[in-house]
Design a protein around this nucleic acid. Structure first.
Lengths: 348, 348
DNA sequence: CAAGCCCTTGAGATCGTTTTCTTGAAGACG
DNA sequence: CGTCTTCAAGAAAACGATCTCAAGGGCTTG
């Protein structure tokens, strides 16, 4: 079994010219049939269709795009931080659901939060003639995309707003969500609340930190820099950082884990230390099995699928000729109480 | 703010012809410089580079691919069941890591396990001239891809092997993993083990069910069809199905949850019923927070990232001219004991 | 019956690039 | 000094499709 060698590209793909020859019509007629067949006599349409079938002709969109007046490639590019983060998986799916209805395909890449990589991806997408770009940007200055937009590429920012370029964006209410999380913990009596989040050069992290700080200030609570931590490699370091934080002198009585992967690490740490009934916790972003834990994890849920859907809808509106002012859509978060956020403070 | 209207495509993209005019050289020379500059005098190279910079020229890969002798588009297509399933997110990332080194981009789509949709995606990718296809196929008969491969598109199956077409494949040892799971439970004394998995028309589900059955038989245990369940919509129904199973007459003392999303549903159900210390459980595929639960979830872990990496490596080997016999790579699973699989049977 | 119109069809230009072919200049060599 | 080789550079064809435009046929209409 499995011993038949794979033949190298034996047959060239048939072209419209060959279809035309077989059908006994001109190249133009074949093109018309392929593009819907309007204005072609029925019997010719049939002959062309038969020839297509016979030869196994497949339309070459590369050549078509090059020549067509509208220049549309029916594909868009998505730049995420990491396609293997379930958050972006859901955003991707939201985009795909909308794109599918229009027969549009998605090119997807991970920037790993590296500006250089993000620009490379944008350039690569652009070189392939994408009609639009949906970007979760990791750069301080997104104006490098101006040239692409000037060349006719539609542009929507998702999860993080654009900087130094006026463009459409769909983001979550990060500050509001963080405020809700921290206010919730304060209402339960907590005064020392740890913050675990990405470094503040990531927009979402900065916003969530802002919400944290503002809410502390609003309630007259002093900010302790010891309690604000930024684990570098989220999965691994969040665990470690949480342990350090909880084993330090004067540890927090509650934690706000401001990102999904960091939250997973923090939850694992709290459970490993046996402190899950002692240290309160709220996470930003819902995580699988959050409700199966004891106690369940109270979360600020965002809707990544809706983020993707909305971004795609805005992108296609632009491609359909919407030249209105740029829009920024902010999607709300939802506080889901499951137990971990409702624990009262206890002396460590 | 945000009130400046977005200008419609104002500038056309500059072409090589325009670059040539500005640099005062011929089109051919510009092409040579863009493609590495071999055989062009240094001063001309510099003049062309300056013109490129000045005009903001961006290479048009669409036109380039059309004309180039090798016809490579430097992009590949990925067909998954669902890009928002973290399992496929990880496979995707594995592919991307390998593709990135070669400057190759990924087009990605979800088939939702619908054969029609899978064929549409393959056709759409093919029309866009992808160099290769990595497919987690949902169809009984994958021979529809023969035509594409004949047209020179490399082909690798991932997660599920090909049917009616001889092609490379990378899959997990589903039968072996399932055997290990069930044997583990039997060794702990369980005789009534529930099976929760996708319908057997999904290859992986059929294989895991086979492993389950064979292991029961091997240990002289009778098979009870009441214990074999196939929740239709995984997230929602797995929860419901698990509840029904555990509340039925003569319920199982252990569960084998044979897919990641089903496992999440089953774990939630077991915990909701308060049976997590009573009913043993092993899941196929590791899931986040499995180790934070009480008891931790014992899993048969597969390595989706390696699945993607390996598939990509095989694909590129073919693109590099490997015409050897087709290969089937089977990646091993790993049993990770965390507690839930080590519970002894108790009368319900 | 001729003029005018609509409708279908095909010829040829064209999209932006690569590739082949040609040209011309410079250098090597007997 | 003439011929042969080598090399850089440009002119033009080609990739596979779409689009413009002109031609031809059939029909209506005066």
């Amino acid at each position: 079994m499995h011993s038949v060698p794979v033949e190298p590209r034996r047959t060239r793909r048939p072209t419209m010219r060959e279809v035309a020859a077989v059908a006994g019509v001109s190249l133009s007629t074949v093109s018309r049939v392929i593009n819907g067949g309007a204005g072609v006599r029925d019997d010719l349409v049939e002959r062309v269709r038969d020839a297509v079938e016979l030869l196994g002709y497949r339309h070459n969109l590369t050549a078509s795009t090059l020549r067509r007046a509208d220049r549309q490639s029916a594909s868009i590019g998505l730049i995420f931080e990491d396609v293997s983060n379930p958050f972006f998986g859901a955003v991707h799916r939201g985009v795909e659901d909308v794109a599918r209805e229009r027969g549009i395909l998605t090119l997807v890449g991970s920037s790993d939060e590296e500006p250089e990589r993000e620009r490379e991806l944008a350039a690569a997408f652009s070189a392939r003639g994408v009609d639009g770009l949906i970007v979760a940007s990791a750069v301080r200055d997104s104006s490098y995309l101006l040239r692409d937009r000037a060349a006719g590429i539609a542009l929507v920012f998702v999860d993080r707003p654009p900087a130094f370029i006026d463009a459409d964006a769909v983001i979550t209410d990060n500050v509001g969500g963080a405020r809700a999380a921290v206010a919730h913990l304060i209402a339960k009596g907590h005064h020392r609340i740890g913050f675990l989040g990405d470094r503040p050069d990531v927009f979402t992290a900065a916003e969530r930190l802002r919400g944290y700080r503002e809410t502390l200030a609003q309630h007259g609570l002093a900010e302790d820099l010891e309690l604000i931590r930024h684990p570098q490699f989220r999965g691994v370091d969040a665990y470690q950082t949480t342990c350090e934080l909880l084993h330090g002198t004067n540890p927090p009585t509650a934690l706000f884990a401001a990102q999904n992967l960091i939250a997973i690490g923090a939850v694992r740490a709290v459970h490993a230390l046996g402190l899950q009934h002692t240290v309160a916790m709220v996470s930003f972003d819902d995580i699988p099995l959050a409700d199966a834990l004891q106690p369940g994890i109270t979360v600020i849920a965002q809707d990544p699928h809706a983020l993707g859907r909305t971004a795609a809808e805005m992108l296609f509106a632009r491609l359909d000729g919407d030249h209105g002012p740029t829009r920024r859509v902010v999607l709300p978060t939802e506080l889901i109480e499951r137990g971990s956020g409702e624990l009262a403070p206890r002396a460590g």
